[in-house]
């Protein structure tokens, strides 16, 4: 197959531009996943543990936002960061920062909803015990997150996958500038628009391979973690 040999060529060519594009893809999506997860996991733990009015509404909205089209998020971030927008003075439009902001907004609801789902059974199992032991609130949240970590980790991976794969938001707020804001997905879009369909598909294979490597590495870490895990005191 021509496409497969082309993608193998691409990988082993050590092409500087391709390397830069791959690294930027990873950096933007990792950072967005890190920020979104750091906010969504504690927030998800709070949502699971406390009942208040409007909680159900938050969950419904968050679930709905999992279906947010990347283009819409991109448009929102564009309007905010545009020089004519409220945050225009920051001058962030068409920078990797703008792409990180857009992807963070895009994947926050995904990590949040999946975290809440991961924590629900833990809460069911632990709440009576924790009440009986009168565990302080912070420790309660930390214990629950820790014991649900493998499920939460799936939530984080789902968010990362979405960030790495989307093109609509980053092309709007990043501008697909050569050497600055060009990532894997926008390169694929550009090459297919140039009619270089085989090259575009080969780049797609490289992207999938990248996702495979990242996931395999994280699963490897998880396995090691599981093998050596010690019971929390």
């Amino acid at each position: 197959m021509d496409v497969i040999s082309k993608s193998i060529q691409l990988i082993f060519s050590g092409d500087h531009d391709l390397l830069q594009i791959v690294l930027l893809s990873l950096r933007v999506s990792f950072t967005a996943t890190f920020i979104a997860s750091s906010l969504a996991i504690p927030f998800g733990a709070l949502l699971t543990n406390y009942d208040f009015t409007g909680k159900r509404a938050i969950m419904v909205v968050a679930s709905a936002f999992m279906a947010l089209p990347p283009v819409v998020v991109g448009l929102l971030v564009y309007l905010m960061l545009s020089r004519s927008g409220p945050l225009g003075e920051w001058g962030l439009l068409y920078t990797p920062s703008a792409m990180i902001i857009a992807q963070t907004m895009l994947i926050f609801p995904i990590v949040l909803v999946l975290t809440v789902e991961a924590l629900k059974p833990i809460k069911r199992d632990y709440s009576h015990l924790m009440n009986a032991l009168d565990v302080p609130p912070m420790l309660r949240l930390r214990t629950m997150i820790w014991d649900a970590r493998f499920a939460i980790y799936t939530a984080v991976l789902a968010g990362f996958g979405r960030a790495l794969a989307e093109v609509g938001a980053v092309i709007l707020v990043g501008g697909n500038i050569n050497g600055q804001t060009r990532v894997m997905t926008t390169t694929i879009a550009l090459e297919s628009s140039k009619g270089n369909l085989e090259l575009a598909l080969a780049l797609g294979l490289v992207l999938i391979l990248l996702a495979l490597i990242v996931n395999a590495a994280m699963h490897g870490v998880a396995r090691i973690g599981q093998r050596y895990q010690v019971t929390r005191q």
């Binding site: 950072t31 920020i35 068409y94 920078t95 990797p96 920062s97 990180i100 501008g175």
Partner: peptide
């Protein structure tokens, strides 16, 4: 520290700003 980390994460993603035009 978290806010600081996020700030660094966001801004460090931008390459050093040479003279450039859009």
């Amino acid at each position: 520290p978290f806010i600081a980390a996020v700030f660094i994460a966001i801004t460090s993603a931008n390459a050093a700003l040479a003279d450039f035009i859009t």
